[in-house]
Design a binder for these strands. Structure first.
Length: 281
DNA sequence: GATTGCTACGAGGGGTCC
DNA sequence: GGACCCCTCGTAGCAATC
């Protein structure tokens, strides 16, 4: 039984949000989920910076293939499933406001435009006219204009463009809070929440520069175990969750490195585990 | 009603793999 | 070059509190 069934959901966090009926979702063969909300979609006009309702066919949902951003804004589902989450998780629905907030977020994000004219070598989004220095950044950005979400949540069906976003979202179901305050008993799902808490409640200011990478912590998404040491983390995963995808990724990497260095079985060597750079996982 | 603290999430930046 | 992975910041929305 997934731990998500045991998560106590604050009504405010989810109940007030609007969800979408599951039958309004279509699961594609590649395990992506796409809204079946049909004929009317909300479109953000980059020219007027306003939302408009436009007809839409599903064919136009391709990533960056059509001019104009399309966001689905289903308007049904009074009350939402927030009150039902404890009773029937199997009918969890996508939040209506997920799409709505997406649209609004893009409206708000459309305002700051640090660069208005592309230089040579820049890549411009044909939908929102944002400028990116690298092609791959534009390619990835175009996914946010698409309704196709390649990483669906197996609990609630909500889709994400990024695996990290999905992993982060899954903590709302599993209740795992890896970021623990050392000065009180509180724990948080995200580092920024902990840092905000430390700053506001304990007046502890982080000694990090803007966008500076923090010290890596390893989080077991199966049970919530955390460690700042990769050897401890992998030993835990190997002992408690031998089928973990994280472990399989680690083994793959070890196999790759073994083939490079010609060494024999070292994937169970804790010293080698410890030598694994933190960013490998 | 305003403020505060927290949750959740979108999305850009960057490193690495295939 | 695209995909993957992980990081960060910014912010909307909510409940609790003032």
């Amino acid at each position: 039984m997934p731990r998500s069934f045991l998560v106590k959901k604050k009504r405010g966090a989810c109940g007030a949000w609007q969800w979408k009926e599951p039958e309004q979702l279509e699961w594609k063969e590649d395990n992506t989920v796409v809204s079946k909300i049909a004929k009317e979609q909300t479109c953000f006009s980059p020219d007027t910076q306003q939302l408009a309702t436009v007809p839409q066919s599903e064919d136009s949902l391709g990533c960056g293939t059509e001019a104009g951003m399309r966001m689905s804004v289903p308007l049904s589902g009074p009350g939402g499933p927030g009150a039902d989450t404890r009773q029937n998780w199997s009918t969890l629905m996508l939040r209506r406001s997920f799409y709505h907030s997406n649209a609004l977020a893009l409206v708000s994000r459309a305002k700051p435009r640090p660069r208005t004219s592309p230089g040579s070598g820049d890549f411009v989004c044909s939908v929102c006219h944002k400028i990116f220095p690298l092609q791959r950044m534009l390619t990835r950005h175009l996914k946010c204009h698409s309704l196709v979400k390649r990483h669906p949540c197996r609990f609630c069906g909500k889709g994400f463009n990024d695996t990290f976003d999905l992993k982060r979202h899954m903590r709302t179901h599993t209740g795992i809070r890896p970021y623990k305050c050392e000065l009180c008993e509180k724990a948080f799902t995200q580092r920024c929440s902990l840092e905000s808490h430390m700053r506001k409640i304990h007046a502890v200011h982080q000694q990090y520069a803007y966008r500076q990478r923090r010290s890596k912590i390893f989080v077991c998404e199966d049970c919530g175990y955390t460690s700042s040491r990769p050897d401890e983390y992998f030993l835990h995963v190997r002992q408690c969750h031998p089928g973990s995808p994280a472990l399989r990724r680690y083994y793959r990497r070890q196999a790759h490195e073994n083939s490079s260095f010609g060494s024999a079985d070292c994937k169970l060597n804790p010293y080698l585990l410890y030598s694994t750079p933190a960013y490998y996982m």
